[in-house]
Protein backbone atom coordinates (compact mmCIF):
# COMPACT_ATOMS: atom_id res chain seq x y z
CA UNK A 1 0.00 0.00 0.00
CA UNK A 2 2.71 2.48 0.95
CA UNK A 3 4.60 1.41 -2.14
CA UNK A 4 1.55 2.14 -4.26
CA UNK A 5 1.12 5.50 -2.54
CA UNK A 6 4.76 6.39 -3.07
CA UNK A 7 4.73 5.38 -6.70
CA UNK A 8 1.50 7.14 -7.57
CA UNK A 9 1.67 9.87 -4.95
CA UNK A 10 1.90 12.69 -7.46
CA UNK A 11 -1.00 11.40 -9.55
CA UNK A 12 -3.17 10.80 -6.48
CA UNK A 13 -2.38 14.30 -5.26
CA UNK A 14 -3.44 15.70 -8.61
CA UNK A 15 -6.65 13.70 -8.47
CA UNK A 16 -7.37 15.08 -5.01
CA UNK A 17 -6.80 18.62 -6.29
CA UNK A 18 -9.15 17.98 -9.19
CA UNK A 19 -11.88 16.64 -6.91
CA UNK A 20 -11.48 19.60 -4.58
CA UNK A 21 -11.81 21.93 -7.55
CA UNK A 22 -14.95 20.18 -8.80
CA UNK A 23 -16.49 20.39 -5.33
CA UNK A 24 -15.52 24.06 -5.15
CA UNK A 25 -17.17 24.63 -8.53
CA UNK A 26 -20.30 22.93 -7.24
CA UNK A 27 -20.29 25.13 -4.14
CA UNK A 28 -19.85 28.32 -6.15
CA UNK A 29 -22.46 27.32 -8.70
CA UNK A 30 -25.00 24.98 -7.09
CA UNK A 31 -26.71 24.15 -10.40
CA UNK A 32 -23.44 23.06 -12.01
CA UNK A 33 -24.24 19.60 -13.29
CA UNK A 34 -23.95 17.24 -16.19
CA UNK A 35 -24.03 19.93 -18.88
CA UNK A 36 -21.27 21.83 -17.06
CA UNK A 37 -19.15 18.69 -16.93
CA UNK A 38 -19.81 18.14 -20.61
CA UNK A 39 -18.61 21.58 -21.62
CA UNK A 40 -15.59 21.17 -19.36
CA UNK A 41 -14.70 17.88 -21.05
CA UNK A 42 -15.23 19.34 -24.52
CA UNK A 43 -13.03 22.33 -23.76
CA UNK A 44 -10.33 20.06 -22.33
CA UNK A 45 -10.35 17.66 -25.30
CA UNK A 46 -7.80 19.35 -27.64
CA UNK A 47 -5.63 20.29 -24.65
CA UNK A 48 -5.65 16.68 -23.49
CA UNK A 49 -4.43 15.38 -26.85
CA UNK A 50 -1.78 18.09 -27.16
CA UNK A 51 -0.60 17.21 -23.68
CA UNK A 52 -0.52 13.49 -24.44
CA UNK A 53 1.61 14.22 -27.52
CA UNK A 54 4.00 16.41 -25.57
CA UNK A 55 4.19 13.90 -22.72
CA UNK A 56 5.31 11.06 -25.01
CA UNK A 57 8.21 13.04 -26.48
CA UNK A 58 9.21 14.44 -23.10
CA UNK A 59 9.27 10.91 -21.66
CA UNK A 60 11.55 9.98 -24.57
CA UNK A 61 13.90 12.74 -23.46
CA UNK A 62 12.95 15.29 -26.11
CA UNK A 63 10.54 18.14 -26.60
CA UNK A 64 8.25 19.03 -29.47
CA UNK A 65 7.53 22.71 -29.99
CA UNK A 66 5.51 22.00 -33.14
CA UNK A 67 2.58 20.33 -31.35
CA UNK A 68 0.10 23.16 -31.89
CA UNK A 69 1.11 23.60 -35.53
CA UNK A 70 0.69 19.88 -36.24
CA UNK A 71 -2.77 20.07 -34.69
CA UNK A 72 -3.57 22.95 -37.04
CA UNK A 73 -2.41 20.92 -40.06
CA UNK A 74 -4.45 17.86 -39.12
CA UNK A 75 -7.45 19.99 -38.19
CA UNK A 76 -7.57 21.72 -41.57
CA UNK A 77 -6.82 18.46 -43.40
CA UNK A 78 -9.82 16.88 -41.70
CA UNK A 79 -12.04 19.85 -42.49
CA UNK A 80 -11.01 19.96 -46.15
CA UNK A 81 -11.38 16.20 -46.67
CA UNK A 82 -14.76 16.05 -44.96
CA UNK A 83 -16.19 19.11 -46.68
CA UNK A 84 -19.16 17.88 -48.72
CA UNK A 85 -18.11 14.26 -48.17
CA UNK A 86 -20.64 11.53 -47.48
CA UNK A 87 -20.73 9.84 -44.09
CA UNK A 88 -18.84 6.86 -45.45
CA UNK A 89 -16.12 8.94 -47.06
CA UNK A 90 -15.60 10.69 -43.75
CA UNK A 91 -14.28 7.43 -42.29
CA UNK A 92 -11.50 7.42 -44.85
CA UNK A 93 -10.88 11.08 -44.11
CA UNK A 94 -10.36 10.27 -40.44
CA UNK A 95 -7.93 7.47 -41.29
CA UNK A 96 -6.07 9.78 -43.68
CA UNK A 97 -5.81 12.48 -41.01
CA UNK A 98 -4.38 10.03 -38.49
CA UNK A 99 -1.83 8.88 -41.06
CA UNK A 100 -0.91 12.48 -41.82
CA UNK A 101 -0.30 13.02 -38.11
CA UNK A 102 1.93 9.96 -37.83
CA UNK A 103 3.84 11.04 -40.93
CA UNK A 104 4.43 14.56 -39.63
CA UNK A 105 5.64 13.25 -36.30
CA UNK A 106 7.92 10.76 -38.00
CA UNK A 107 9.37 13.56 -40.15
CA UNK A 108 10.11 15.59 -37.01
CA UNK A 109 11.80 12.61 -35.41
CA UNK A 110 13.74 11.65 -38.52
CA UNK A 111 15.04 15.19 -38.95
CA UNK A 112 16.24 15.23 -35.34
CA UNK A 113 18.00 11.91 -35.76
CA UNK A 114 19.49 12.61 -39.20
CA UNK A 115 20.61 16.21 -38.79
CA UNK A 116 21.85 15.78 -35.20
CA UNK A 117 20.50 19.26 -34.50
CA UNK A 118 19.03 19.55 -30.97
CA UNK A 119 15.34 18.56 -30.84
CA UNK A 120 14.26 21.95 -29.52
CA UNK A 121 15.77 23.69 -32.56
CA UNK A 122 14.41 21.20 -35.11
CA UNK A 123 10.89 21.36 -33.73
CA UNK A 124 11.14 25.15 -33.50
CA UNK A 125 11.89 25.24 -37.22
CA UNK A 126 9.18 22.66 -37.91
CA UNK A 127 6.73 24.84 -35.97
CA UNK A 128 7.06 27.38 -38.78
CA UNK A 129 6.98 24.67 -41.45
CA UNK A 130 3.77 23.01 -40.22
CA UNK A 131 2.19 26.39 -39.61
CA UNK A 132 2.94 27.22 -43.24
CA UNK A 133 1.56 23.89 -44.44
CA UNK A 134 -1.68 24.49 -42.54
CA UNK A 135 -2.04 27.91 -44.16
CA UNK A 136 -1.35 26.43 -47.60
CA UNK A 137 -4.06 23.81 -47.12
CA UNK A 138 -6.62 26.34 -45.95
CA UNK A 139 -5.84 30.05 -45.86
CA UNK A 140 -8.97 31.03 -43.95
CA UNK A 141 -11.14 29.02 -41.54
CA UNK A 142 -13.47 26.78 -43.53
CA UNK A 143 -14.31 23.23 -44.52
CA UNK A 144 -16.69 20.99 -42.66
CA UNK A 145 -17.05 17.95 -40.44
CA UNK A 146 -19.26 14.87 -40.76
CA UNK A 147 -22.26 14.87 -38.46
CA UNK A 148 -21.64 11.46 -36.93
CA UNK A 149 -18.13 12.57 -36.06
CA UNK A 150 -19.40 15.69 -34.36
CA UNK A 151 -21.95 13.72 -32.37
CA UNK A 152 -19.17 11.50 -30.95
CA UNK A 153 -18.09 14.23 -28.58
CA UNK A 154 -21.50 15.77 -27.90
CA UNK A 155 -23.83 15.06 -25.03
CA UNK A 156 -23.64 12.39 -22.34
CA UNK A 157 -22.74 8.81 -23.11
CA UNK A 158 -25.44 6.18 -23.51
CA UNK A 159 -24.65 2.59 -22.64
CA UNK A 160 -27.38 -0.06 -22.90
CA UNK A 161 -26.44 -1.96 -19.74
CA UNK A 162 -26.12 1.01 -17.40
CA UNK A 163 -29.01 3.09 -16.02
CA UNK A 164 -29.26 6.53 -17.50
CA UNK A 165 -28.89 8.15 -14.12
CA UNK A 166 -25.28 6.94 -14.05
CA UNK A 167 -24.26 7.57 -17.62
CA UNK A 168 -25.88 10.99 -17.46
CA UNK A 169 -22.77 12.23 -15.65
CA UNK A 170 -20.30 10.88 -18.17
CA UNK A 171 -19.78 13.20 -21.13
CA UNK A 172 -19.09 11.60 -24.49
CA UNK A 173 -16.10 13.87 -25.03
CA UNK A 174 -14.46 12.44 -21.93
CA UNK A 175 -15.11 8.86 -23.02
CA UNK A 176 -13.72 9.62 -26.48
CA UNK A 177 -10.53 11.04 -24.99
CA UNK A 178 -10.07 8.26 -22.45
CA UNK A 179 -10.66 5.50 -25.01
CA UNK A 180 -8.45 7.07 -27.67
CA UNK A 181 -5.54 7.64 -25.32
CA UNK A 182 -5.91 4.27 -23.59
CA UNK A 183 -6.10 2.36 -26.89
CA UNK A 184 -2.86 3.96 -28.08
CA UNK A 185 -0.92 4.30 -24.86
CA UNK A 186 -1.64 1.21 -22.76
CA UNK A 187 -0.50 -1.40 -25.32
CA UNK A 188 2.41 0.84 -26.27
CA UNK A 189 3.62 1.22 -22.71
CA UNK A 190 3.66 -2.54 -22.17
CA UNK A 191 5.40 -3.21 -25.46
CA UNK A 192 9.10 -3.30 -26.23
CA UNK A 193 8.83 0.05 -27.98
CA UNK A 194 7.30 1.66 -24.89
CA UNK A 195 10.08 0.34 -22.71
CA UNK A 196 12.63 1.61 -25.22
CA UNK A 197 11.02 5.07 -25.15
CA UNK A 198 11.42 5.22 -21.38
CA UNK A 199 14.96 3.86 -21.71
CA UNK A 200 16.22 6.46 -24.18
CA UNK A 201 14.61 9.19 -22.12
CA UNK A 202 16.25 7.96 -18.96
CA UNK A 203 19.78 7.52 -20.31
CA UNK A 204 20.40 7.13 -24.00
CA UNK A 205 23.94 5.84 -23.64
CA UNK A 206 22.78 3.08 -21.32
CA UNK A 207 19.88 2.36 -23.68
CA UNK A 208 22.29 2.14 -26.60
CA UNK A 209 24.51 -0.28 -24.71
CA UNK A 210 21.50 -2.45 -23.93
CA UNK A 211 20.92 -2.83 -27.62
CA UNK A 212 18.14 -0.34 -28.25
CA UNK A 213 18.07 1.31 -31.67
CA UNK A 214 18.01 4.86 -30.35
CA UNK A 215 17.32 6.62 -33.64
CA UNK A 216 14.41 4.37 -34.55
CA UNK A 217 12.89 4.61 -31.08
CA UNK A 218 13.12 8.41 -31.16
CA UNK A 219 11.40 8.54 -34.55
CA UNK A 220 8.69 6.22 -33.19
CA UNK A 221 8.16 8.42 -30.13
CA UNK A 222 7.70 11.49 -32.30
CA UNK A 223 5.38 9.52 -34.61
CA UNK A 224 3.19 8.61 -31.62
CA UNK A 225 3.18 12.28 -30.66
CA UNK A 226 2.11 13.07 -34.22
CA UNK A 227 -0.75 10.59 -33.88
CA UNK A 228 -1.95 12.31 -30.70
CA UNK A 229 -1.66 15.66 -32.47
CA UNK A 230 -3.82 14.27 -35.28
CA UNK A 231 -6.44 13.28 -32.71
CA UNK A 232 -6.15 16.76 -31.22
CA UNK A 233 -6.58 18.42 -34.61
CA UNK A 234 -9.49 16.12 -35.37
CA UNK A 235 -11.16 16.99 -32.07
CA UNK A 236 -10.75 20.70 -32.87
CA UNK A 237 -12.58 20.21 -36.15
CA UNK A 238 -15.13 17.97 -34.44
CA UNK A 239 -15.78 20.61 -31.81
CA UNK A 240 -16.20 23.61 -34.10
CA UNK A 241 -17.25 21.97 -37.37
CA UNK A 242 -14.66 23.97 -39.34
CA UNK A 243 -10.90 23.89 -39.85
CA UNK A 244 -8.81 26.67 -38.32
CA UNK A 245 -5.36 27.12 -39.92
CA UNK A 246 -3.87 29.34 -37.18
CA UNK A 247 -2.50 27.25 -34.30
CA UNK A 248 -4.21 27.69 -30.94
CA UNK A 249 -2.55 28.19 -27.55
CA UNK A 250 -1.80 24.50 -27.15
CA UNK A 251 2.00 24.57 -27.05
CA UNK A 252 2.45 26.48 -23.79
CA UNK A 253 -0.56 24.80 -22.18
CA UNK A 254 0.72 21.32 -23.04
CA UNK A 255 4.16 22.00 -21.58
CA UNK A 256 2.51 23.33 -18.43
CA UNK A 257 0.24 20.31 -18.07
CA UNK A 258 3.05 17.84 -18.75
CA UNK A 259 5.24 19.36 -16.06
CA UNK A 260 2.37 19.72 -13.63
CA UNK A 261 1.47 16.09 -14.38
CA UNK A 262 4.77 14.85 -13.01
CA UNK A 263 6.64 14.11 -16.23
CA UNK A 264 10.21 15.23 -15.68
CA UNK A 265 11.73 17.38 -18.44
CA UNK A 266 14.77 15.42 -19.48
CA UNK A 267 12.81 12.24 -19.80
CA UNK A 268 12.40 8.72 -18.55
CA UNK A 269 9.84 9.36 -15.83
CA UNK A 270 6.10 9.81 -15.56
CA UNK A 271 3.13 8.60 -17.55
CA UNK A 272 0.14 9.99 -19.38
CA UNK A 273 -2.40 9.83 -16.56
CA UNK A 274 -0.85 12.62 -14.49
CA UNK A 275 -0.62 15.09 -17.39
CA UNK A 276 -4.21 14.39 -18.44
CA UNK A 277 -5.45 15.02 -14.91
CA UNK A 278 -3.36 18.19 -14.93
CA UNK A 279 -5.16 19.34 -18.09
CA UNK A 280 -8.48 18.97 -16.32
CA UNK A 281 -7.13 20.77 -13.27
CA UNK A 282 -6.06 23.72 -15.40
CA UNK A 283 -9.42 23.81 -17.19
CA UNK A 284 -11.32 23.44 -13.89
CA UNK A 285 -9.38 26.34 -12.36
CA UNK A 286 -10.31 28.45 -15.35
CA UNK A 287 -13.96 27.44 -15.02
CA UNK A 288 -14.00 28.07 -11.28
CA UNK A 289 -12.52 31.53 -11.66
CA UNK A 290 -14.97 32.33 -14.45
CA UNK A 291 -17.90 31.22 -12.28
CA UNK A 292 -16.57 33.36 -9.46
CA UNK A 293 -16.76 36.27 -11.92
CA UNK A 294 -13.02 36.85 -11.75
CA UNK A 295 -11.55 38.83 -14.61
CA UNK A 296 -10.48 36.25 -17.24
CA UNK A 297 -7.08 37.94 -17.37
CA UNK A 298 -6.51 37.28 -13.70
CA UNK A 299 -7.17 33.66 -14.59
CA UNK A 300 -4.09 33.69 -16.81
CA UNK A 301 -2.03 35.05 -13.93
CA UNK A 302 -3.36 32.39 -11.57
CA UNK A 303 -2.64 29.62 -14.09
CA UNK A 304 0.91 30.81 -14.64
CA UNK A 305 1.53 31.21 -10.93
CA UNK A 306 0.24 27.72 -10.17
CA UNK A 307 2.45 26.28 -12.85
CA UNK A 308 5.56 28.09 -11.62
CA UNK A 309 4.95 27.39 -7.93
CA UNK A 310 4.19 23.71 -8.51
CA UNK A 311 7.30 23.29 -10.62
CA UNK A 312 9.45 25.09 -8.04
CA UNK A 313 8.09 22.89 -5.24
CA UNK A 314 8.66 19.79 -7.35
CA UNK A 315 12.24 20.82 -8.08
CA UNK A 316 12.98 21.57 -4.42
CA UNK A 317 11.45 18.24 -3.34
CA UNK A 318 13.58 16.43 -5.90
CA UNK A 319 16.73 18.15 -4.61
CA UNK A 320 15.87 17.09 -1.06
CA UNK A 321 15.37 13.52 -2.22
CA UNK A 322 18.73 13.45 -3.95
CA UNK A 323 20.51 14.81 -0.89
CA UNK A 324 19.02 12.33 1.56
Amino acid sequence: MTGFLKKHGWTLGLLAILLTLLIAIRVVQPNFGASGLESLARAALPFAFATAAMAVVVIAGGIDLSVASMMAVTGVTAAVLMDNATEGQAVFAVIAVLLVGIAMGAINGALIVLTKVPDIVVTLAMLFVWEGVALLILSTPGGGAADWLRSIIAGPVSLPFLPEAWTFWLPNAFIFMAVAIAVIWLPLRRSKLGLSIYAIGSDDTAAFRSGIAIGRTRVAAYAVAGLFCALGGLSLTMGTGIGEPVPGPYLMASVAAVVLGGVVLGGGRGGLLGPIIAVFILRAIRLLLTLMAVDPNVTTIVEGTIMVVVVMLGAILMMRERRS
Binding site: I63, I120, M252, V255, A256, V259, L265, G266, N297, V298, T299, T300, I301, V302, E303, G304, T305, M307, V308, V311, M312, A315, I316, M319
Partner: peptide, 18 residues
Protein backbone atom coordinates in the same frame (compact mmCIF):
# COMPACT_ATOMS: atom_id res chain seq x y z
CA UNK B 1 14.88 26.35 -7.06
CA UNK B 2 16.69 24.69 -9.98
CA UNK B 3 13.66 24.73 -12.27
CA UNK B 4 14.34 24.05 -15.95
CA UNK B 5 14.82 27.49 -17.58
CA UNK B 6 12.42 26.62 -20.40
CA UNK B 7 9.56 26.03 -17.97
CA UNK B 8 10.47 28.84 -15.61
CA UNK B 9 10.61 31.51 -18.30
CA UNK B 10 7.51 30.11 -20.00
CA UNK B 11 5.63 30.40 -16.71
CA UNK B 12 6.80 33.91 -15.87
CA UNK B 13 5.95 34.90 -19.45
CA UNK B 14 2.38 33.67 -18.89
CA UNK B 15 2.11 35.51 -15.59
CA UNK B 16 3.50 38.71 -17.09
CA UNK B 17 1.01 38.49 -19.97
CA UNK B 18 -1.85 38.18 -17.51
Amino acid sequence: CRVHPLIMTLGTGLIATG
